[in-house]
């Protein structure tokens, strides 16, 4: 502090410091007000509330589009599915939930063709990771939104996804 110049230098630095300081204070206050405006909006707009009063509104409840409940295989009205038995889903599944049991059909031309006998799905092992759905080349399986899966015996959780007597749709290879 004994020399004159550094003092002025310090003063100049102090000035910059002061400006930054005031800027920090203002930007902080501003960002806090932005946050409070958002929460204040939610506080006053009760139609935004997303709580589902579940057992009470069981009939009318609304599940998010991406909610994943279990793997199912859609069938059309002729009891046909799109599964070719390629086992890609079985390979994709990280925890061995799916077991594809294949058989060989005889086509009208007398050739042998691979098809599924059963697509066994162990719900109790499934983590709903969606990997099998992504892996399936012919969009044969998808995620359903059912979620009330409690049963008294775990053997009931082992499901066969293709309906009995179903066969593959025409044109799906």
């Amino acid at each position: 502090m004994s020399k004159g110049l550094p003092l002025w230098g310090r003063f100049g630095g102090g000035f910059m410091f002061l400006i930054n300081y005031i800027k920090t204070v203002f930007s902080t206050v501003k960002s806090m007000l932005v946050g409070m405006r958002r929460t204040g909006y939610y506080f006053t707009h009760h139609k935004e509330i997303i709580t589902e009063e579940y057992p009470d509104n069981r009939e009318t409840m609304h599940l998010p589009e991406r909610f994943k409940g279990e793997v199912v295989m859609p069938h059309d009205e002729k009891n046909e599915h799109r599964c070719t038995g390629c086992t890609a889903c079985e390979l994709a599944c990280p925890n061995g939930t799916i077991k594809v049991v294949t058989k060989f059909d005889i086509t009208p031309e007398g050739k042998k063709k691979k098809a599924i006998d059963k697509l066994v799905y162990h719900l109790e092992l499934c983590t709903m990771c969606n990997l099998c759905i992504v892996a399936c080349p012919s969009d044969a399986i998808k995620m359903a939104q059912t979620f009330e899966h409690s049963v008294f015996d775990r053997s009931q959780l082992t499901k066969v996804l293709n309906n009995p007597g179903s066969k593959i749709m025409d044109g799906v290879e």
Partner: peptide, 12 residues
């Protein structure tokens, strides 16, 4: 207050 701010119903 906390429930409404967090878009919940709170005790009901």
């Amino acid at each position: 207050v906390s429930a409404w701010i967090q878009i919940r119903l709170g005790p009901n």
